[in-house]
């Protein structure tokens, strides 16, 4: 099993932390994992993305030319990555910010109104975790408890933040 996922969105939407969260969870489950952020001039101008590869075996390349999963948190990310996804792959769309029609018929599409759910929960900045919850359920790469464990280690002892993020995560998880 080798599964590659690209997380993409605006800077500040927390796409890098989503990727790190998945990488951390996979590591906790004893899987091989690589995390590759976009860097340098590529990330100037406000878009950010990262690639996470998870596998039971050694990972040859951390780059995903045809990823299994793509999480598009904004419109430009959708435009950039929708044609790269593997046939049969799953495209996660933040439907709060993306209105466009998807032209491809050979992929599964999951629409998550991440921002509006996060707002309803009273923590607009946790939209990424809502999406992360939906992604965790659908992709089934790692268990939701590992994601929560990863979250806890990333946020160290910030109990309040952990609670907010966990709530958002579960809201997304229970959506599907």
């Amino acid at each position: 099993m080798l599964i590659k996922t690209i997380f993409a969105g605006f800077g500040g939407q927390g796409v890098m932390s989503m990727g790190l969260n998945l990488a951390q969870a996979a590591m906790l489950e004893g899987k091989n994992v690589t995390y590759l952020p976009s860097y340098g001039a590529e990330v100037r101008g406000g878009t950010a993305n990262c690639t996470v590869a998870v596998s039971d075996e050694e990972i040859a390349s951390p780059v995903a030319s045809s990823p299994d999963f793509i999480i598009a948190m904004n419109q430009p990310s959708l435009v950039r990555f929708q044609n790269q996804i593997q046939s049969g792959g799953v495209l996660f769309i933040n439907s709060s910010l993306i209105e466009a029609e998807i032209s491809r018929g050979d992929i599964d599409i999951v629409r998550v109104p991440a921002n509006s759910i996060a707002e309803k929960l009273g923590s607009p900045r946790s939209a990424n975790m809502v999406m992360m919850g939906a992604f965790t359920k659908k992709s089934n790469i790692v268990s939701v408890s590992s994601v929560i464990e990863g979250l806890k280690s990333a946020l160290k002892d910030k109990q309040k933040l952990i609670a907010i993020n966990e709530k958002a995560l579960m809201a997304g998880y229970d959506l599907l």
């Binding site: 690589t34 995390y35 590759l36 952020p37 951390p62």
Partner: peptide, 10 residues
């Protein structure tokens, strides 16, 4: 190389 530098692995 740039990729080894940027990439995270356990």
């Amino acid at each position: 190389d740039g990729m080894l530098g940027q990439m995270m692995e356990p």
